[in-house]
């Protein structure tokens, strides 16, 4: 089997995917254990920040050659939403604006469109970053100006 729960290739599983889309530690939890399976989830298009999901997924074992940079690997492939609900709490969470890309330098994942600051996730989905404190705005502007150059 694969991952810490010894999943079989092709096995159907249920996962909890929470509202903190793209946050540090954003990993699906395998049911009924409520623990990370240590296998990445792929193909969950349509996931929206702020919503908790119970989904179905299928374990897919990678049988190709191993790449120097880690390359593709075993994964859980999204196979449908069982339920979704809007998150109503106000818990804060952390987002990394720097991403390491192998091979290459670390990248700051931030751009400005008009007056909006945009961050994008590894899936390609984008999220706007807003602020109330003007000091945060000036820091984002500094990052963006440095990034642009």
């Amino acid at each position: 089997g694969y991952g810490r729960f010894n999943l079989k290739d092709g096995q159907e599983v249920e996962l909890l995917v929470d509202h903190k889309y793209g946050a540090i530690g954003d990993v699906p939890l395998l049911l009924p254990y409520n623990e990370a399976s240590e296998l990445p989830l792929s193909s969950f298009t349509g996931r929206k920040p702020g919503y908790n999901y119970k989904i179905k997924a299928r374990m897919s074992a990678y049988k190709g050659p191993i790449m120097m940079d880690g390359g593709p690997g075993h994964s859980l492939i999204f196979n449908g939403i069982i339920s979704e609900e809007r998150y109503l709490g106000d818990e804060s969470f952390r987002l990394s604006l720097v991403r390491s890309v192998v091979p290459g330098p670390n990248l700051v994942i931030l751009r400005k469109e008009g007056e909006k600051f945009i961050h994008w996730l590894e899936t390609g989905d984008e999220i706007e970053l807003t602020y109330k404190d003007p000091l945060i705005g000036s820091k984002l502007e500094e990052i963006w100006q440095f990034n642009k150059e």
Binding site: K48, P49, R86, F93, L95, V108, H119, Y131, I136
Partner: peptide, 30 residues
């Protein structure tokens, strides 16, 4: 990049729910 890490502490932006994160704090490590 100039920064080794930039971490934003965020919540959901209630005025733009599902589309935006509201930043409460930014931490830099050069």
């Amino acid at each position: 990049s100039k920064w080794r890490s930039i971490t934003a502490t965020v919540t959901h932006d209630q005025e733009n729910f599902g589309r935006a994160y509201l930043i409460a704090d930014l931490n830099f490590m050069e």
